[in-house]
């Protein structure tokens, strides 16, 4: 295990790319999400049939999330995040967060733990 970083992502930033930028800010090349919560304007979740689930807000609350940020073979960073969100009636939806389509509404709090792969 390496370092640990806590970040607060501001409104109108994308959740997925925000976590990638948080890694850039701290020099992490690989990281695990240790704890995270916050709100989105609307949520956009992937599904197995190639369609997406669009959950209308604001705000859509992120009530559970798991994921990682990994270095790709081309040297870029990519976050993979999956979780459960709730709408303004408390109804829940789940799936992978689509990069570029999950915009923070008020704030997103996240703790990342740097992962140092062996070798």
């Amino acid at each position: 295990m390496g370092r640990v970083a806590y970040g607060r992502i501001a409104p109108n930033e994308d959740l997925v790319q925000g976590l990638e930028k948080l890694c850039l800010a701290h020099g992490f090349r690989n990281a695990f999400v240790r704890g995270a919560l916050g709100s989105l304007v609307d949520a956009c979740l992937g599904s197995t049939n190639g369609k997406i689930v669009h959950v209308a807000g604001p705000a859509v609350e992120v009530v559970s999330i798991a994921g990682e940020v990994r270095s790709k073979p081309d040297g870029s960073l990519a976050a993979s995040l999956s979780g459960v969100v709730s709408d303004t009636d408390g109804n829940v939806y789940g799936g992978p967060f689509v990069a570029g389509a999950n915009i923070v509404c008020i704030t997103f709090e996240v703790t990342l733990e740097e992962w140092l792969p062996a070798g």
Binding site: G7, R8, I103, C105
Partner: peptide, 25 residues
């Protein structure tokens, strides 16, 4: 997917979009 919405907040836009700190362990 539908185009993401950019909301207008009541206060002045803060150019710092990610506030973060780290610790060695």
């Amino acid at each position: 997917f539908p185009r993401p919405r950019t909301l207008v907040h009541p206060g002045r836009f803060n150019p710092v979009r990610i506030q973060s700190l780290d610790a060695q362990q």
